[in-house]
């Protein structure tokens, strides 16, 4: 069952699952019994992964931060509805994706009232990221930035399923549920999103796509 495995808190990628974090089930149970500090520990474990999903979908760090906070609050408020047979991270990412989708919808509605152009992502790389080889690190950094740009350039309807698939490690059915779309539509959008991403990366000469 889902509670026997869980994706890591700090990395939301495919194949990066590990056995459920020590005491995770206990943390959820303690939270259900009213222990707020247990929920604080859950937030600590999953905040990076949730923020990654939100950032991937919203493409705006400030909005992603808000969405991350909201996701943990909504998850807490609905924790009694959490099905223990589901993977906790999947449930949490579903809530996050829902919030992001609603946020984008609102943004679209109010866009004419706001000034054009979103806040740019922080252009300064973190100083605490360790890089054994500066040249390799620069190349990686450039490639990561290109992928981020490629994702940002995608329409939201392609971006959200791709992020949930590749970063959140959700399957088609879970993505369909999270975004309120038919499963067939999700497959189509992921396929088209992949084609668009590949085209972008090829055009930019990213290794393996040149």
């Amino acid at each position: 069952m889902g509670m026997t495995r869980s994706s890591t808190a700090d990395e939301g990628g495919r194949g990066k699952e590990r056995a459920m974090g020590e005491g995770e089930l206990q943390l959820i149970q303690r939270t259900l019994q009213g222990d707020m500090s247990a929920w604080g520990e859950i937030v600590k474990r999953y905040k990076n992964a949730v923020f990654g999903i939100a950032l991937g979908i919203l493409n705006n760090p400030h909005d992603a931060e808000d969405a991350t906070q909201d996701a943990f609050i909504r998850a807490y408020e609905n924790l009694h509805r959490y099905d223990l047979t589901r993977k906790f991270s999947t449930w949490l990412f579903t809530i996050t994706a829902n919030l992001c989708k609603n946020k984008l919808r609102r943004e679209k509605f109010f866009a004419p009232l706001r000034e054009l152009g979103g806040r740019p992502a922080n252009p300064h790389p973190s100083t605490n990221s360790h890089a054994p080889d500066p040249a390799v690190e620069v190349e990686r950094e450039e490639r990561a930035e290109l992928v981020r740009q490629a994702l940002a350039a995608l329409d939201e309807k392609y971006r959200a399923p791709l992020v949930l698939r590749f970063y959140g490690d959700l399957d088609y059915k879970e993505i369909a549920e999270a975004l309120g779309l038919p499963e067939g539509t999700v497959k189509t959008r992921i396929h088209r999103g992949k084609l668009a991403l590949r085209a972008w990366l090829e055009a930019k000469g990213v290794k393996g796509y040149a």
């Binding site: 990395e11 939301g12 990628g13 495919r14 990076n48 923020f51 990654g52 950032l55 991937g56 760090p61 992603a64 931060e65 992502a121 922080n122 300064h124 790389p125 973190s126 990221s129 990686r140 950094e141 490639r143 990561a144 930035e145 290109l146 992928v147 981020r148 490629a150 994702l151 791709l162 992020v163 590749f166 970063y167 991403l197 990366l201 990213v206």
Partner: peptide
């Protein structure tokens, strides 16, 4: 690439 790109973007923020 997507995972790496987003993970680095997360690290920056």
């Amino acid at each position: 690439l997507v995972r790496e790109g987003l993970a680095r973007a997360v690290a920056r923020e």
